[in-house]
Design a protein around this nucleic acid. Sequence first.
DNA 1: GCAAAGCATCGACGTATATCAATCTATCAG
DNA 2: CTGATAGATTGATATACGTCGATGCTTTGC
Lengths: 90, 90
Amino acid sequence: MSAQEAEELARTLGALADPVRLRLFSLVAATHEVCSCELEAPLGRSQPTISHHTKVLADAGLIVGERRGRWTWWHVVPERLAAVRSALGG
Amino acid sequence: MSAQEAEELARTLGALADPVRLRLFSLVAATHEVCSCELEAPLGRSQPTISHHTKVLADAGLIVGERRGRWTWWHVVPERLAAVRSALGG
DNA sequence: GCAAAGCATCGACGTATATCAATCTATCAG
DNA sequence: CTGATAGATTGATATACGTCGATGCTTTGC
């Protein structure tokens, strides 16, 4: 594995290597589409913290946010998660 | 996903979310058995740093070290990696 | 236009992590 | 026993990260 490949994969895994982000991702995956405002309560984190975590996951390509009016609706990118699993030895 | 499950999975993913550890793991997996002294050169890190990273991966259950004489021989735990991939695909 | 709602950004704070030099422990060769 | 080697541990340092309060931006509703 090249240093560049490792750097890239490590960044993606790092996006998932946080308990709050794992549960956030799980919530988005379970409901297929959620707005940020619905994530604060179940995760017990402030609005800026939720915004931070959604950004990290989005930058990693694991979720995508669609802006509709005042709300941002999040949904998962299953191909991206599959790519991570594949890179881990699939 | 429960907070406890997320904490556990995050810790394991965190062990893999580092470029040096990913390449280290890749080297161990490729050669089936490697001693620590053979890892410093290809990874370009000092001996204490290599020792630190092998410990992190071992604590996560991803590799196992067997002490034979002066050398510690490392090999991967494929079931552990499979469990991680499974947890990501559930 | 104005106020409220949803979300992003900034600044700050505490903690965790990656790294190395120095040191310690254990093992082997002579 | 002595010197050398493999590896672990400690201490120090720089950087990254999670978190929140305060603030800014954009859209909605009146």
